[in-house]
Nucleic acid binder design. Structure first.
Lengths: 354, 354
DNA sequence: CTGAAAGCGCTTACAG
DNA sequence: CTGAAAGCGCTTACAG
C-alpha cells in the first residue's frame, strides 16, 4: 500500500473542501443525503486528486472484503482455464475480486486451501470439488460447481444431456457399436456423461464402457488402450468423457492406421483449446461456462449481500445444457466399417477443412 | 466476514486474561517483548477460542495486504495452469494470497486488470504480458515473466537454450532439414525459441521458418499447413514453438499417412498435460515453472518487505534452463526419409510404450 | 516486561 | 442537508 495508495484519502478531500469526511463518504457513495452541488464539488475534487477508495478500510468497517475465493481440485487440470476465466469475469462484473487456491490433489490440501481463503476474510467461495469430496459447512457462503448428481447445492453443466447428444448424433450417422471411454469410475461427472450416452442407445445398439484407470491398473500406465482390436471387434464409435481421452484415442487409432472418421468416429467432451486445431478437428461438447459461472456468482452474491446467515446457495440446483460441436472426427458409418480398415486415408476433401 | 470470523479478536483474548490487546498482539507475533509464561498463556487461550487474526485489520494498520496480483494475457492459454499453479504455490509458501486478473486479449483490458488489482491494494503484481506490451511503472512492485529478450525486469525460462536443445537432439539423430513452426512472428518467446534452434544447425543443415498466423492470413484459418508437401520436399524434422502447434503438425502428418517418428520427427515446447498421453508421446521441452515462480515471488517479496521505494525487481534478469523431455515423436532419421513415406505404420514396439 | 493511546481509512447510526 | 463521534481489528511508538 505504501506504493499503491497515491496518498489521498477521504479526510484530505474533506479538508480541501472544508467539509466532514462523513459527507465526502456519503457524496461519493451516492447515498443521497448530500446536496447536489456539494456532491458535484466533492466528485470533482476526488477526481482531481486521483482519489481511489481504500477497499481495505471499507472492508474493516463493513465486514466485507469484496473478495471471493476459487478452489480448484488441481489447477493443472486442462479445464481450469475455462473455469477460472469465466469465474473471474463474472466476479469482476459483480465487483468482486477472485483469490485462487489450489488443492493440489489431496483432500487435506483442499481443506487447507479453504481455510487459507477463510483467513483472508473472503466473502464467499466457489469450489470445484475433488472427486468424491463433500463440501460441508465451512462457515461462509459456498457455491459448488460439479455435477447435478452431487449431493448438496451445486451448479453444473448438464452432463447427462451432453452424453445423450453425443450418442444421438452418432446413432443418426448409423453407428451401432459404441465404446464409451471414461477415466475414473468414481467421478460423478464422468458417470453422468456415460449414463446419458447409454440412455440414448439406438435400436439394436450396443455399448461397452472402458475405464482407463482400471485398464492401466492392469496393463500399466500410459500404454496403448488396444483400440485397434476394438475396431476389429466391430466398434465404430469411440466416445470419451473428455477431450483428453478422445485425443488419446484419436492418436492411437491414427497411429494404428485406422482412418478417423472413415473407419471410426471419435468424440470428446469440454472443447479444450486444442480440439479445433488438430486434424481432423474433434467433435465434442462444450459447457456454457459463462452461464454456469454467472449462476454461481449471482447466487453467492445474493447470499452475501442479503446477509443471509446460511451458507446454502442455488437451492434449485440448476444445470446448464451443453452444446454439441460437430467437427471432423465423426462421420456416417462406412459400409465397410466394423472390420479393420487399412486403406490409405485420403487427404481430407476441401469441404472438411476447418 | 459476518460468516467467516468466529467473532474472536485480540481484545477478547486480552479481556479473558486481564491483559492489554497490545500484549496479546506482541505475544502472538512473537516479537519477544513479553514474558515466556504470558506468551504461553496467551497462545493457549488463543488456540482454545479458535482465534484467527484478521488480515484485514492488520492490512489497514500495516499498509500491507499480503496479497499479490497475477495478470495473465489470456487465462484460456493452455500454459496458464502451469503458471498459475506455480505462482500460487510460491506465493502461499511465502505467506501471500493470489488475486487473479485476466486481460482477455486486449491491451486496454490488461491496463484495466492491473488497476483493479491496484485498487484492491495488492502488495505487488506478477505479470505475464501480452505480446509486445511493455509494462511501465504502475506504482507498485512488479515482476514480469516473459522472455529474456524482453526489455525491463523479467524472469523467464531460457527459451533460446531450449531451442538449441531441440535441434541438438534432432541433429544427433541424423536430421538435417528442419521446418521450424511458429505461430506469431511478433512474440519474443517464440523468436527466442526459433533463434536458439537456428543457432545449432548441424553442418550442412537447413532450416526454414513457417509462421502459422502468416500462413493462415493467406490460406484461411484452421486449414492444413501443407506439411505432407514439406515432407516430400525433404524435411524430416518439424519443430514447433509450442505443443499446441506440434499437436497440429503431428495429427496432420498422421492423417496424411506419414508415420511419426519413422518418416518425420516432431517436437513441441512446454510439455502441456496431454503431451504424454497421445500416441506417439510428444518430445518436448519443459520449463521449470516452479523455479521461475519462486524467483519472481522472492524478488517481489524482497522489494515489498524491505519497503524499497522502487518498483524494479530481479535486476539480474535470470533465465531458467529448460529440460528436454524425449518421448516417441523423435527418432533417428530413416535412410528413406526425405521422400514421402506411405508405408503402413507398425504397431509401436513394446519398448516404445510409455 | 507491560499498558494506554493513537491511528490506518472507512461507514454508520445519531444528533443537529 | 451536514457534522461529530464511534468503531471495525490490528500494530506501533511511547511511556512506565
Amino acid at each position: 500500500m505504501a506504493f499503491v495508495r497515491s496518498g489521498s484519502n477521504l479526510s484530505q478531500i474533506a479538508a480541501l473542501l472544508g467539509v466532514s469526511a462523513a459527507t465526502v463518504s456519503n457524496a461519493l457513495s451516492g447515498k443521497g443525503r448530500v446536496s447536489a452541488e456539494l456532491v458535484d464539488k466533492i466528485r470533482a475534487t476526488a477526481a482531481e486528486i486521483g482519489y481511489v477508495p481504500s477497499l481495505t478500510g471499507r472492508a474493516l468497517r463493513t465486514g466485507r472484503t469484496g473478495v471471493l475465493g476459487l478452489v480448484l481440485p488441481d489447477i493443472a487440470n486442462p479445464l481450469f482455464p475455462q473455469i477460472a476465466q469465466a469465474i473471474e469475469f463474472a466476479a469482476s462484473s459483480a465487483g468482486y475480486g477472485v483469490l485462487i487456491a489450489d488443492s493440489r490433489g489431496s483432500v487435506a490440501m483442499q481443506t487447507d486451501a479453504i481455510s487459507r481463503l477463510v483467513e483472508r476474510d473472503v466473502d464467499g467461495i466457489v469450489i470445484v470439488p475433488r472427486r468424491g469430496t463433500r463440501i460441508t459447512d465451512i462457515g461462509c457462503p459456498v457455491a459448488v460447481i460439479d455435477s447435478p448428481s452431487t449431493p448438496g447445492n451445486t451448479v453444473s453443466a448438464d452432463h447427462w444431456q451432453g452424453g445423450q447428444a453425443v450418442v444421438e448424433h452418432l446413432a443418426g450417422l448409423g453407428h451401432r457399436r459404441f465404446l464409451l471411454i471414461g477415466n475414473n469410475a468414481a467421478s460423478n461427472v464422468q458417470n453422468d456423461r456415460i449414463g446419458g450416452m447409454k440412455s440414448r442407445l439406438p435400436q439394436g445398439g450396443h455399448a461397452e464402457v472402458m475405464w482407463i484407470e482400471r485398464h492401466e491398473a492392469q496393463f500399466g500406465k500410459g500404454g496403448l488402450l488396444g483400440l485397434a482390436e476394438r475396431v476389429a471387434d466391430g466398434f465404430t464409435a469411440f466416445c470419451a468423457v473428455s477431450d483428453l481421452q478422445a485425443l488419446r484415442a484419436l492418436t492411437e487409432l491414427q497411429r494404428a492406421g485406422i482412418a478417423v472418421p472413415e473407419a471410426a468416429s471419435v468424440t470428446g467432451f469440454d472443447d479444450l483449446v486444442w480440439s479445433s486445431v488438430i486434424t481432423p478437428g474433434l467433435t465434442t461438447l462444450r459447457m456454457d461456462m459463462a452461464t454456469i459461472a454467472d449462476i454461481a456468482i449471482k447466487a453467492l452474491v445474493r447470499v452475501i449481500e442479503t446477509d443471509a446467515a446460511g451458507t446454502a446457495v442455488a437451492a434449485d440446483r440448476p444445470s446448464v445444457p451443453m452444446t454439441l460441436v460437430i467437427r471432423q472426427t465423426t462421420a456416417r458409418m462406412a459400409a465397410s466399417a466394423g472390420t479393420v480398415s487399412n486403406s490409405e486415408p485420403e487427404t481430407p476433401p476441401e469441404g472438411e477443412r476447418r
